[in-house]
Design a protein around this nucleic acid. Structure first.
Lengths: 131, 131
DNA sequence: CTGTATCCTCGTTGATACTG
DNA sequence: CAGTATCAACGAGGATACAG
């Protein structure tokens, strides 16, 4: 063949389909509550209001949506006990636990580099003011 | 209160300060364009419109905001050449390259588990319809 | 207790036009 | 080329009330 060199554009184009999908997953990881809930559930199964209290600041609506999203993605298993009053347990699936590993790694990175980042932000903001 | 046992709530409360900050960083990772730009810049320095073309679908405004955010966080270094027409290069800093590692890991996880996730979604959606 | 339904607000995004 | 400014549209998220 003529051109054996693979350019970035070509490789990027080849990955584009996956990239979009991967981006969607990353978006879920980045949303306001999902990670907090997943990290919480690493400790073990929890009930709805238990999670709500532990997260703190999340509305009923948002917790419902977050959990439903996680359940749909196969990250969380929902178990309902038809008692009065009703009781629902949420727990991580194997997939969810598996996800929590790289997420944890990212979290640890963020925590470790927090000082660097905040320093960079301060420097940037200070530079902006003096200009 | 009387109880001396250290509950999850208390441990969680102790970490809350960091958690919020870490969440903010995770949110940046999860936003629509940041990851794509960072992954692109792993290849080397790029110019503004070069990035714009390669990402594809991003507006001028959003690219500006994304790059400025990354610069503020110390992930990206901006170099301006005062030529006519002006030329600006963006490249990852060591911090940015460092970030790209756990992000890459997460991306690979997402890619590897895409089938599982999509299967879970289909199953969930199908179950919803039949009810 | 565990949700669902509704409304409303605010921030994010995108399109467009303009500047150095 | 590399942005900034402005405006319009949209969606995420919270508050509240209600249901099973």
């Amino acid at each position: 063949m003529e051109v054996t060199e693979v350019t970035f554009e070509e490789r990027h184009h080849a990955m584009e389909g996956d990239c979009r999908k991967v981006s969607r997953i990353l978006a879920r990881v980045g949303d306001k509550w999902t990670v907090l809930v997943v990290m919480l559930l690493r400790e073990g199964p929890r009930r709805f209001n238990e999670i709500k209290r532990m997260v703190g600041g999340i509305s009923q609506r948002m917790l419902t949506l977050t959990l439903k999203g996680l359940e749909r993605d196969g990250m969380v298993k929902r178990t309902m006990f038809p008692t009065i009053p009703p009781r629902v347990d949420y727990e991580l699936t194997d997939l969810g636990r598996s996800l929590s590993e790289p997420v944890m790694a990212l979290g640890l990175w963020a925590k470790a580099h927090l000082p660097e980042i905040e320093a960079a932000q301060s420097a940037f903001d200070a530079r902006g003011k003096s200009d």
